[in-house]
Design a protein around this nucleic acid. Structure first.
Length: 288
DNA sequence: AGCCAGGAGTTAA
DNA sequence: TTAACTCATGGC
């Protein structure tokens, strides 16, 4: 994967900063492409949360090659730049799909969308929650477990809650049980949480630097309640495995309608996951 | 093989 | 107003 090397952060010394040279990155498309459930948008300003961090971030409509940020500058440099994955350069992928009718349209429509590099633990739990839920419902449920089990954070004079650590989530499950609104997923989450605490599964060792895609999938699918869909989402959005190709009802619908029910994701190698995200975003936005 | 779980937010009918 | 559906998975 090619990278942009000239992304620049200017500290305004007043709690805000400017991220420059983002090369067509679209904050809106990236956050609204269904990969992330911990943000809200008020007047075109996104409040984004991950782990125990919060930022306010917006894309200047007059100069959309910059992002304006309210939040800790050190976190922006050390966490958020990587989290939004602004530096990955997808021009090779966009060239690859030229001539492939549907995929070319999807890539054009999704231009600026990036696969984020989210925290693996957070991603795993969010996508276990995601099963058989719609996106607004996933967001409220994730928010609820943060409020019940996370730690209070003060940001811009408002209260927010961190994503619970495995230890805090487990004690929350013991305390609140079915009142957490997790439905039949409660035991799935309890099981995964215990496995992480007991180090029977070590998520850090499953990222793309330390593990093959196949091995990562095999290990994730040993978790009770984690099947191919949730494992692929965790691999793609939380562990950097861009060859992962999650197939949900939307993607299946597109494959059925546009590709006669047959789509070989493997042919796209490490670009498969990005193409999947283009398909998902385009298919959901345009197809009804 | 086919159906069921729990419940809530959204969209189609 | 009601019904079906929602970024699935495991049990039976």
């Amino acid at each position: 994967m090619k990278r942009f090397e000239d992304i620049d952060i200017k500290d305004n010394k007043d709690g805000t900063c400017i991220i420059k040279n983002i090369h067509g990155f679209s904050l809106d498309k990236t956050l609204r492409s269904g990969q992330c459930f911990r943000f809200k948008c008020i007047n075109n300003i996104f409040i984004v949360q991950s782990k125990d961090k919060v930022i306010g971030i917006t894309q200047d409509c007059l100069n959309d090659d910059t992002l304006l940020v309210l939040g800790d500058i050190k976190d922006v440099e050390e966490y958020w730049i990587n989290y939004f994955n602004i530096a990955d350069n997808y021009t090779d992928i966009d060239k690859l799909v030229i001539g492939n009718g549907y995929l070319e349209r999807a890539a054009r429509y999704s231009s600026g969308l990036k696969i984020m590099k989210q925290d693996a633990w957070e991603t795993l739990i969010c996508f276990i929650i995601s099963q058989r839920n719609n996106i607004p419902k996933i967001m409220t449920t994730v928010n609820k477990i943060c409020e019940l089990c996370g730690e209070e954070i003060d940001f811009n004079n408002k209260k927010y809650y961190s994503f619970p650590t495995p230890e805090r989530l487990l004690s929350g499950i013991k305390e609140y049980g079915n009142d957490m609104g997790l439905g039949y997923r409660l035991p799935y989450i309890g099981y995964a949480t215990r496995k992480v605490i007991d180090k029977e599964i070590e998520l850090d060792k499953l990222d793309y630097k330390n593990s093959s895609y196949e091995n990562t999938m095999n290990v994730l699918e040993t978790l009770y309640g984690v099947g191919p869909k949730v494992a692929n989402c965790t691999a793609l959005f939380g562990l950097g495995h861009t060859s992962a190709f999650p197939v949900d009802v939307w993607i299946q619908r597109i494959i059925d309608k546009e590709f006669n029910g047959c789509f070989e994701a493997k042919q796209f190698g490490e670009y498969a996951g990005i193409i999947q995200q283009y398909m998902f975003y385009y298919g959901r936005s345009s197809g009804r």
